[in-house]
């Protein structure tokens, strides 16, 4: 039955090459931890992706309860963590995942750097990777305002002051981020929510897709 459905679709859309391209390639020995244990360093990229998937999923589920509003944000987080079954775990996954993704990204970056894997022809993929790193830091920064607790509020204020230190356009950047020239409040929260949930993930998806296409296209860098 499944085979027939597959054949029916394949005859019309020719999907076999799509998954063959992903599945049917050989992985060289030097990245395989089963051959050389030291090859575990090649796992960091994959684990980064794995934690990112966890972040995306847990984030999607968290928005079922969360409201980006200064009066209700904290209460909704408190509620989902306290009253909702597994709320503690789901928020925990998002909270600890945020830290882990940074750790994994950091290790992945170091691996690529010290192996010189960014050398020609892979320069472009390195640049995309560093942009991904920036996007992740941005997600971390916008994310911790959302529970609207004291830490969120005051740390964001500090962050905005740092942004305001930019010469010439500092105040404009601050206003753009906070939604108001002086207040960190309702408009800041909704802005950060939009950035955290729509803008940065969109950038993340695009960059990640590009990152993976390039890896597939160029292959893993050879052994040192």
């Amino acid at each position: 039955m499944l085979q027939k459905i597959y054949d029916w679709v394949d005859e019309r859309v020719d999907i076999t090459p799509l998954w063959r391209d992903i599945a049917d390639h050989e992985v060289p020995e030097h990245v395989n931890p089963a051959h050389h244990f030291s090859a575990f360093v090649y796992c960091f990229g994959g684990l980064t992706f794995f934690v990112t998937v966890i972040q995306i999923l847990s984030g999607m589920f968290l928005t079922m309860y969360y409201v980006p509003d200064i009066e209700n944000a904290w209460n909704s987080v408190y509620y989902l963590q306290r009253e909702v079954a597994y709320g503690q775990i789901v928020r925990g996954m998002h909270h600890w995942g945020a830290s882990l993704v940074i750790v994994m990204l950091f290790l992945h970056t170091l691996r690529v750097f010290f192996q010189g894997a960014y050398k020609k022809p892979r320069e472009l993929n390195w640049v995309i990777g560093v942009l991904l790193f920036f996007v992740m830091l941005g997600l971390g920064f916008t994310g911790y305002l959302l529970p609207w607790d004291n830490k969120a509020y005051f740390a964001t204020q500090v962050g905005l002051e740092i942004a305001a230190a930019t010469p010439i356009i500092g105040d404009q950047i601050r206003t753009l981020l906070a939604g108001d020239p002086s207040i960190v409040g309702a408009q800041t929260l909704t802005r950060f929510f939009a950035i955290h949930v729509f803008f940065l993930p969109a950038a993340l998806f695009g960059l990640m897709a590009f990152h993976f296409v390039l890896i597939r296209k160029q292959g893993i860098s050879g052994p040192l």
Partner: peptide, 15 residues
């Protein structure tokens, strides 16, 4: 990790 350590939440923001 997530089960053992509850993700922290501080008191509601108070400017």
């Amino acid at each position: 990790l997530t089960a053992a350590h509850a993700s922290p939440l501080e008191q509601q923001a108070d400017p």
